[in-house]
Every structure is written in structure tokens, then in C-alpha cells.
Design a protein around this nucleic acid. Structure first.
Lengths: 200, 200, 200, 200
DNA sequence: CATGAATGAGTATTCATTCAT
DNA sequence: AATGAATGAATACTCATTCAT
């Protein structure tokens, strides 16, 4: 049999993934301040020295998390088949993706928020976050352009500006007091009315 | 920047205001992590012990800043005469206020962002930030309701959801790469198109 | 009328007495460590700076307290008329004095204990405490000598050593778990049996 | 005094013992106030952070010392073979033990005194000191009871009260000015005369 | 790979004391 | 006499990082 008998032998890559997961959970719980190397090690179940064996420094760790966040985000987006959908359907898919993430992986959005804030003064974080935000923006913008082109969205819609509003609106929906699936959907429906062609 | 020795002795109230200002500047520069009591004292030009004489603890300090932020926000809003303006003019006033703050008091928005993040796990901060956000939302919502009533805004506009989008859109505008007056205005103009009655 | 209309005008001496009282209460409550100038000022109802106006330093304060303790102790002893009493009656008076102090001014004994400990490394405190302890020892020793002379106490009693035991026994009585008037009296009665002439 | 660098790495248990010893020496020298974590670390020859690695807090440290004191006390008592001794011989063994400790391990008695004072307001210290004092009292009381039973001690002796006096007398002997072996022995001899049966 | 022990540089907070008013 | 404001020096404790094993 080629199956590894020794399960304790995890390769460094899977350890790093495990660590990134622990860090994301901790950032979601306690924020960036409050993130302690010792807590991370404890959560993974290893010694601090071992943590430092896998990750050279706290800064490197944060970069790692930013990258893992970006990778997850893009992987999720790529997983969805959007080719045969109308622009409106694609927009709705965007909404439902976002809603799913908010309820099933809330940590993802929370950590993204914290990272976004940190990106402002940490170039390494910015290097991972900016392309992610750019990718998302581009995605939404393409949908809006397609909708404007086929007449389902407003003719006077300015895709770049509208993409900012669509994304900002989705994020704002999650920051309402006591957000629920219904309160999110109310905002998403309003976004639709914002962009749809009134005469269609 | 440093206060001359003979001006060092002030009354507690003005000292507290001065301290709150220094803290806001430091949070804007370095974020919440990175906020050090020593740096605050240095910026105000006083001893750390003196800082603690005026402010009992870091926690109290943060609460103080959250309150000062809220007070400033509401004061600025109250300062504007909105009575005789049309809903659209009021919305545009909202935009220009926001743009002014972004360019003239960028620190205000930056600190608000950091505070918003922190509010999630600090009830004392939440106690100051939640009403502020609520006040803002209410303000925008009232404008949207008035516009829907007089026919200048969409008839199918849902004021609460739309207010979230308007605010979220404004905030998102500032988070674009290299935000300028023009890029902000492009988003603001798009928000207008989002809410205006297409048949008016 | 010659009565001072201005009650606020307390002369420094009475202020110092008041301060010494507050310090004794605080030492009894929290011990020597735990004694804070600010707490003293608070208890007296004055500002710290005012406290320092009356008392130059914490060290001087402690000396003051040691002296006040000694003065009280000697004053109480002098207040008792012992001339016409038999040695046994005088010893019993010693016991009842001590018992009264323990129940009515417990703070006095507690502070004396703390001071005794401190005297070991603070010469200024030692300077006040040593004569006090010496005065007490001398007092008890004189009683024991008189009793040995008149045959009411043991003939083989060694006054100096016995005085140490009598005083040590009284103090030890207060350090039993849950000391009560009865438990004190049991020890006092045993001390009596220790020193009395068995053949008398 | 300072451990050489290559001996610096020891196992935690021996480090904790070493630390407890350093703390006892420092308390004996400077008392409870005056006890500084930095000084402890210096005396052991380690960094403050290392000290905190082995001992979580100052409070825990004090508890540790109280326990080490109690363990030493009981160990010393247990080491003596008392079975075949007469009550008077046992009492004299008690005296000689105490005298040995006073001259060879003066720190032990000094720290016990400080701890006794502190036990009053620190339950964790009380938890270690009370049983120790209780054990000692019980030991002495058993001797006195045996002596009363075999007629070598006074028939009217009340063992509990007398035990308090015996212990109190021993302690008082050490608090005389300039205590010497002779001055201690004079008090011990007087204690003997206090408890012995005059008609034996 | 893993870890117990160690550490330098910080971090908020405290405290006795001073000084201008 | 009294006080609000100020401060230097300390104090316990923390944290990311290192290193010998």
C-alpha cells in the first residue's frame, strides 16, 4: 500500500493551510489587534517554536492569510458557471454567492473587512487585497456592461461607478443592525431596481 | 506641533479635547493596532503620567474618541440648513458634505472606518458608533422618502434599503484605487441616476 | 464670642493627628504594602498636594504614625491607677487592658504588628517602636518582680524572660483562629497559672 | 551568585525551587513591600520574561513561597525522631529545633513572620500558613498533654492555651533586642518552669 | 519536525512628589 | 492652606522571536 502510515507527517504546505485557517478564525473573533502568535499555535495544537518553524514571522503570516483569502475568493467565483446566464441572472448569482458566504463563512467577510483596513498601511497586505477587490469589481462591471448592452440595465448606467455602488451596497447590507437573509434580500432587490432599465 | 511649556497647563476639558484630536490623528496614521499611549502623550506634548491623569485608561480613551467622532458628525450635519431644499438638492448636499470631509478631514472617515470595525467587539465603541450610523441612515432615508413623495425619486424606491445603498456607495467611492474629486463625483452622479424617477 | 467662626481653619497639629488616624485605619485594612498617599488624602478629604503640605514625605508619615502609636500606648498605660493594686491584680489589669484594646481598637494592635515587622529594616520606625516595646516589657517585668518579692508569684521566676513570655502569650492569644473574649481569657488564665506561686 | 550561562537551562521544577529560594531571601532582606519581580529575576540570574515563563504572576509566586515554607517546616518536624523521648525531652527538642532555625535559617522565621502578617488579607497565603501554624500548635499541644498525663507537667495545665503561650514565648524570645543563644535559652528555660509540675 | 526555555524591547499603568496659582 | 495639573521613575506583565536539544 502506498498510503502513508504515519499521519503525523503532514507536509509543510498542509500545515501552512491549517495555520492560515486558524489565523482567519482568530482574526474574525478578536480582530487584528488581539491576534497573538501563541493563540494561533494553541489553536493549531503546536508549539510556538513550531509555528515559527513553518512561518518565519507575524508579517509573513498576515501576508499568507491575505493570499489565502484572495485564493478562496477567486476559487469560489470561478466555480460558478456563468456563461449561459443573462446579465440579471449573473447579478443575482453574485447576490446569492455573497449571501451564502455571509451566512456560511461569515469569517471570510469579517477577515476581509479587517484586511481591507490594514491594507491601507501594510503594502504586503495591499498586494494581496487590491487585486482581489479589483477582480471583484471587474466581474461586477462586466455584468453591468453586458446588461447595458442588451438593454436589460439602464442605458445611462456608468459601469465602473455602478460597480462600486453595487459592491458597496452589498457590503453595507451586511452592516445593518441585525442583518438577516430578508434584510439582505431587500437591499439586493433595491440594487436591482437601481440598475434595471425602467422601460424594459 | 508641541505645545510650549508655558501653555502646557490647561484645564482638563480642553486637554481632553486636545488628546482626542491627537488620538484621531494617530489612529488615522497607524490604525488601532499601533496606537500607543506613549505616542499620544508625545503628540500632545505631555508626560504619559499626565495623559493618565486626564484619561484613566486606554479603553476610556477609545470611548472618548468614539464620542468625539459622533459629536463632530452630528454637529456638522446640524450645521447645514436643509429646510428649503428639494430632496435632490439635499442629497447633493449630502454628497458635497461627504466629499468635503474626505478631502479636508480625511482622518475623520479613516477613524470612523477603524471604529466601525472595532465596534464589533467593543460594546463601549458600539454604543457611540451605532447611534451615529443610525442617525446618518435616518437622515438619508428621510431625504429619499421626501423625494419619492414629491415624485423626483423612483416610485418603487424602498427608502431603508436605498439608504443603505446610498451610504454604502459613498463609502465605496472612497475605497476605489486613487480616489479623486472626479472619481467620487462619478459615483455620486451614478447614485443620483439610481434613485431618480426616470420619467421625471 | 471667642468661638472660632471658621471651622475650616484647623491648625496643622490637628490635621496631622487626623492624618495619622487615617493612615492607621488604612494600614489596618490593607497593610503596609497597599498604603497609598492618594488613599490617605481621600480618607482625610483633602488633596494630595495638601497632604504633602502637612507631611513632607511618606517616610515622615510612617514615622509620625509610629510615634502616634507609641504615644497612645503610653498614655493608655499611664491612665490606669496601679499603685494600690497587688501584683496579681496589676497583671490582670494588663490582661483586661489588652483585651479591651483588641476588641475596641483592633486597628491599634494590627498596626503595631505591621510596624514591628517594618521596624526591622526602617530605623526611624524602630526608633519609635523599640522604646514602646521596651516600656511595655519593663512594665510587665516590674509586676512580675513585685509578685515574686511578695511571694504571690513563683520564687524561681526569672522576670525578664517571664515578661517576654507573658507578652508573647498575650499576642499569641490574638493570633489563634477566631479569637474571642473567652479564648483570650483562657490564655490569660493559663499565663496566671504559669507565673503564680503553686504553694501560695 | 549568578548562574553561569551554560547552567542557565534547567528544568522547570528546579527553576521554581530556585526562584522560591531567591524570593525568600529577598523577603527576609527587604520585606514584602520592596519585593520586586526584577530583583528576583536578577538574583536567579534570569530575564524577567523568563521568570514570568516559570511563574505566571506575582500572586502565584507568593503562594509558591508560602507553600515552600510550609513544606520545609513540616519536613523538618517530621525528620526528628520523637517517639522514645519523654515529654520534657520533646519540648526541649522543640526549643533546640527552633533555636537552630533561628541561627542557621533566620530567613525562614523572618519570612514566616511577614507571611503571617500578609495571610490576614491574602486568602491564598492564609491557605498555606494556617495549616502550618495549626500543625505546630498541635505538635506542641500533644507534648503538653503527654506531660500532664505522666505527671511531669502541671496538672492544672490547659494544653491548648499553654501551647499558644509556649509558641508565643518562643517567638517573643527572638524579638528581644539583640537576641543571642543565651537570651533564647533563658526564655526557653522559663517556659519549662512555666509548664513543669512543681511537685515533681 | 517539534519543543521547553530563554530573552530584548516594549506596554499600560501607578506612585510619590512638585509647582504655579 | 489648598489644589489642579504635571512628571520621573518604576512596576508587573506581554509578545514575537530565538536556540539548544
Amino acid at each position: 500500500m502506498t498510503a502513508p502510515a504515519d499521519l503525523a507527517r503532514r507536509d509543510t504546505d498542509s500545515r501552512r493551510t491549517e495555520i492560515a485557517g486558524a489565523v482567519r478564525a482568530l482574526i474574525a473573533e478578536r480582530g487584528f489587534e488581539g491576534l497573538r502568535m501563541r493563540d494561533i499555535a494553541d489553536r493549531v495544537g503546536i508549539n510556538i517554536a513550531t509555528l515559527h518553524y513553518h512561518i518565519p514571522s507575524k508579517e509573513a503570516l498576515i501576508t499568507l492569510v491575505a493570499q489565502s483569502l484572495r485564493d478562496d475568493f477567486i476559487a469560489q467565483h470561478r466555480a460558478q458557471p456563468r456563461e449561459n446566464l443573462s446579465p440579471l441572472e449573473q447579478l443575482r448569482l453574485e447576490f446569492s454567492d455573497f449571501r451564502d458566504t455571509f451566512f456560511n463563512n461569515p469569517e471570510r467577510l469579517l477577515v476581509m473587512g479587517e484586511m481591507q483596513e490594514r491594507a491601507r498601511r501594510d503594502p504586503a497586505v495591499a498586494a494581496a487585497m487590491t487585486p482581489m477587490r479589483g477582480y471583484w469589481h471587474q466581474q461586477v462591471r462586466a455584468i453591468l456592461e453586458a446588461g447595458r448592452a442588451d438593454g436589460s440595465f439602464r442605458a445611462d448606467l456608468e459601469p465602473a461607478a455602478a460597480a462600486a455602488i453595487v459592491i458597496g451596497g452589498m457590503v453595507a447590507a451586511t452592516k445593518q443592525p441585525n442583518p438577516s437573509a430578508e434584510s439582505l434580500d431587500r437591499v439586493f432587490a433595491e440594487i436591482e431596481r437601481c440598475v434595471r432599465n425602467p422601460s424594459s
